[in-house]
Amino acid sequence: MPEQQRKQRPAPRERVEEEATVATPTERGEKLKSELDDLLDEIDEVLEENAEEFVKSYVQKGGE
């Protein structure tokens, strides 16, 4: 299942720790973190495929 693969994909460990100090300016509890992880897993499932292509193709005409 693609969802499973996404969940299990290991992120580069060192980089995560390095970024994490930047990413969370305030202390957050373990419970919150686990809830957040679940939420990200959920969001993974609805995210559009192929981010780069998708973002590139989103072009609008100016408005107003």
Binding site: P12, R15, V16, E19, A23, T24, L47, K56
Partner: peptide, 16 residues
């Protein structure tokens, strides 16, 4: 960024 080790230029962030 924290979970996936993304750089800030990563297209996934623009997608999010």
């Amino acid at each position: 960024v924290a979970r996936d080790g993304l750089a800030w230029g990563d297209p996934k962030l623009a997608l999010l």
